[in-house]
């Protein structure tokens, strides 16, 4: 790359297209570790899929034992597997707690490459409107971090603005970095 080349990072651009219509995580600081804790309500909604999926799978198993309706068994079993898998895939990110560890000097979200805490330069709050094809739109907010190398990584993504601002401030204080409000007016 030519040394004269430069690039700009649009800090007002949200990183994720989608987002939940509820509070998904809160920031908890214990000693030298700050981590994201999933809310009980969000876990419960994910569990609905696991329960419904397991019920359909059990029903399919029962029918397989007592009847010869194999088409219904396949239909129920298929739906059961799909819904259960979907539920597990929703729960997994909640169980893998993203954390900022001062002792190890690492931010680990189990998704992106680990980031050294001293490389994190600032935190930014972004906003967006989630538009649904078959439902009404709603606002959603992101807390993103910026590294010295220009990487932007999402930390929080939910629609509780007040809680997100509190958590962002808590995290900024914990990391000793600046917090910028990069919310913009969304043109409809």
């Amino acid at each position: 790359m030519d040394k004269k080349d430069f690039f700009t990072i649009d800090l007002k651009r949200p990183l994720l297209r989608d987002g939940p219509n509820f509070l998904s995580h809160t920031v908890i600081v214990i000693g030298d570790i700050a981590y994201l804790r999933p809310t009980i309500s969000s876990m419960m909604f994910c569990m609905i899929y696991v329960v419904v999926g397991s019920f359909l799978l059990s029903l399919a198993t029962y029918l397989l034992i007592v009847s010869t309706k194999y088409d219904l068994v396949i239909f129920l079993g298929g739906f059961g597997i799909a819904i259960t898998t979907f539920g597990i895939s929703l729960i997994r990110p909640f169980l893998q707690r993203a954390s900022f560890n001062k002792q190890l000097d690492i931010f680990n979200n189990h998704k992106d490459r680990d980031v050294k805490l001293h490389h994190i330069t600032s935190l930014h709050i972004n906003n967006k409107i989630i538009q649904r094809k078959h439902a009404l739109s709603y606002p959603c907010f992101e807390l993103n971090l910026l590294t010295a190398h220009g990487r932007r990584i999402n930390v929080l993504n939910h629609n509780d603005q007040q809680q997100l601002q509190q958590d962002a401030q808590l995290l900024a204080t914990f990391l000793g970095i600046e917090l910028h409000d990069c919310r913009k007016e969304v043109m409809l």
């Binding site: 989608d18 987002g19 939940p20 219509n21 509820f22 309500s41 969000s42 419960m44 909604f45 994910c46 609905i48 899929y49 329960v51 419904v52 019920f55 359909l56 819904i83 979907f86 929703l90 989630i130 649904r132 094809k133 078959h134 439902a135 709603y138 629609n159």
Partner: peptide, 23 residues
């Protein structure tokens, strides 16, 4: 009951993923 549970999770919980999958 099965349909109501799934509808409940979307409209009460506002789960974005199931709405996206449906879309």
């Amino acid at each position: 009951i099965v349909l109501a549970s799934l509808v409940f999770s979307v409209i009460v919980g506002g789960m974005p993923s199931i709405a996206s999958v449906t879309e």
